[in-house]
């Protein structure tokens, strides 16, 4: 991680009067994995399209390795591998034929192309299915082949635009295994998603976009540091709690906030210290409230997003 491979500067894109990307700037260092996080419609895919030269920005520019990206900038495009959100595969061509096509688009041919096809098929665990058509693949296998197609030309920057959409947990794990191999090899990655657990698992650096604007651009550790609460306690009570008792809980040491729901039978308690959990449960028991179920969780990016925007990532 020595220098910025990608430098996104003040990107702006509007359709009619609506700005879908508004003055977005961030950088990606060599070897870094950047998580581009935001709810659906936040402007992630539009940003990715401008980075890849598919859309011309109204303002701003994209520098890749110091070169400006644009529609005809083929030398710059050689450095990028795009895994689009959609399955960009020809269902009636075999997996190998698909790869040969995409490889040829990047000027690969002959034995070099064959060699690269084998290598990427091996990486995504599809070498034994090379002769089969994607129409016979599961959703997860298609997603892996989609990634393989982007890796053929050994790009410096791999951009994955929500690569796990519609994939079962097992296939998602298989995809993450492949991505972690790439990360360990020092590949530079941009990973867009609205699944915070995916970004948390991979990213060294996180950019959160909402309504086309960057609302956070830092490391996961820095993001967590901005959070007042370190943990969450979720409680289900057998009897409804009185509002006066909720107010009393809110001012207990180590408690940041208390939200009541389900007519007083469910509590979400944000804790600034993990250690207060036990004393809080004791207090409730002494006050006559029986707990049917409770769970604690470390604060995650979902909570970060909630804190920053006031709404859920999946909204």
């Amino acid at each position: 991680m020595t220098s910025a491979l990608l430098d996104v500067q003040h990107l702006t894109k509007a359709y009619a009067a609506r700005k879908v990307v508004d003055n977005v700037s961030f950088s990606v260092m060599r070897g870094q994995t950047l998580g581009l996080l935001g709810p659906n419609g936040a402007g992630k895919s539009t940003t990715v399209s401008m980075i890849c030269g598919l859309l011309r920005p109204d303002q701003g520019k994209v520098l890749l390795d110091g070169q400006t990206m644009g529609a005809g900038k083929h030398a710059v495009k050689f450095k990028i591998g795009l895994v689009p959100q959609d399955l960009a595969l020809y269902e009636d061509l075999s997996a190998r034929e698909n790869l040969k096509l995409f490889g040829a688009l990047y000027a690969l041919s002959g034995s070099k192309l064959q060699q690269r096809c084998d290598a990427v098929l091996d990486l995504v665990n599809l070498l034994d299915r090379a002769g089969d058509k994607p129409s016979t693949f599961s959703g997860g296998m298609k997603r892996r082949l989609n990634i393989a197609a982007a890796l053929l030309h050994d790009p410096e920057l791999l951009i994955l635009d929500e690569p796990t959409v519609g994939v079962d947990p097992q296939s998602r794990n298989a995809i993450f295994d492949s991505l972690e191999v790439l990360k360990s090899q020092g590949r530079t990655l941009i990973y867009t998603s609205h699944y915070m657990e995916e970004v948390e698992r991979l990213a060294d650096h996180i950019v959160i976009i909402d309504h086309g604007k960057v609302i956070a651009n830092e490391t996961p550790a820095d993001l967590y540091r901005r959070m007042p609460a370190k943990a969450e306690l979720k409680l289900d009570l057998l009897t409804a709690i009185a509002e006066a008792d909720v107010a009393a809980l809110s001012v207990m040491p180590g408690v940041d906030s208390v939200h009541m729901s389900d007519h007083g039978k469910h509590l979400d308690v944000a804790l600034t210290e993990h250690e207060v959990t036990l004393s809080l449960l004791n207090w409730l028991a002494k006050a006559g409230y029986k707990t049917s179920h409770f769970a604690t969780a470390k604060t995650n990016l979902e909570a970060v997003f909630l804190t920053l925007t006031g709404r859920s990532l999946r909204d």
């Binding site: 399209s49 959609d86 399955l87 960009a88």
Partner: peptide, 15 residues
């Protein structure tokens, strides 16, 4: 519609 067109154009080939 399927995103294949953009995938082709993301490669270093012109429209």
């Amino acid at each position: 519609r399927l995103g294949l067109w953009n995938r082709l154009l993301a490669a270093p080939v012109g429209l």
